[in-house]
Amino acid sequence: MKSFFKKHFRKILITTSLGVFIIFSINYYIVKTTENYVFTEIEKLPKVDAIIVLGAKVNQEKLSYVLEDRLVAGINIIYANKAEAILLSGDHGQKEYDEVNSMRKYILRRNFKVKKEQIFMDHAGFDTYDSMFRAKEIFDIKSAIIVTQDFHINRSVYIARNLGINAYGFAVNEDMYKESVRFNWKIREILTRVKAFKDILISSNPTYLGEKIPITGNGMKSWDTIEKAK
């Protein structure tokens, strides 16, 4: 084994260095090409077709703090009259795990001043790429404000804009989270941006598509049938 490394050390070093260079170049490119579209102040955001709130972990119907922060920010952007509709996009691939209905119920339970017709639900937003692809193809969104934490916002805007959405990002403040948590997010994001770059490069398809539900229509058409009757 030692002799192998001695023999191939130069090749291993060059390959590793090249890999690291490519990874950090992709990350730099994604951040630099989207930074002018990312905002931290609601009043500076433009008016768009829809607010897109990206899903995150839930425990039964209880939102994680990360998701709650995103959702409240999205509601505040609606209140600022930046859009008429809000798209809740997340993982509802299993009956026992449901991010989108948890978000919808949170809005209704808190009596936010948002009409039911304004709330659209994407049950197959299994990852950021799927969420953006479906926002364009299923919900016919041409312009959007994406709401997520700072570590995630550049990748989200990058994907959306490369898929044809005139997208802007609202970076939810994450300073209240532990440094160790934020550090883990940023390390994981380095590799996830590479995947996003690859998905755009090869024009990946989402897990599911389906019939169109235009964002200009009634959001309740995207609700589960049993929930429409409530």
Rank of each mutant, 00 (worst) to 15 (best):
I187G: 04
N173Y: 06
K195S: 14
L209H: 06
G217F: 02
L191V: 15
L209Q: 07
I215A: 01
T192W: 05
V194G: 09
L201S: 15
R193V: 00
V172T: 03
S203R: 15
L209T: 14
A171H: 04
E211N: 14
E211I: 10
E174D: 14
G169L: 03
E174N: 12
I187H: 00
I190R: 06
Y177F: 15
I187Y: 02
A171R: 01
G217V: 03
K198E: 08
L191T: 13
N218F: 00
K195H: 12
K198F: 13
F183D: 01
E189F: 03
E174M: 08
R182E: 00
E179G: 10
D175S: 15
K178T: 03
F197D: 05
I202N: 09
D175H: 09
I202T: 14
K212D: 00
G217Q: 02
L209F: 07
E179L: 12
K195N: 13
I213A: 03
D175I: 10
N173K: 11
I187S: 02
Y177I: 04
A171L: 09
P214M: 07
T192K: 07
I213F: 04
A196E: 05
I187R: 05
N184K: 13
R188H: 14
L201K: 14
E174V: 01
R182M: 02
I202P: 03
N173P: 07
I187Q: 05
E174A: 09
S180I: 10
A196R: 03
N184D: 14
I213K: 08
D175A: 13
K212H: 04
M176G: 04
K195W: 06
I215T: 00
K186L: 11
V181K: 12
V194Y: 01
G217H: 01
I202Y: 12
I187K: 07
F170L: 02
F197E: 06
K198R: 12
F183E: 03
I200H: 11
V194D: 05
R193F: 02
W185R: 08
L191P: 07
F170A: 01
K212C: 01
Y177P: 04
E189G: 06
V194T: 11
K212S: 06
K178Q: 09
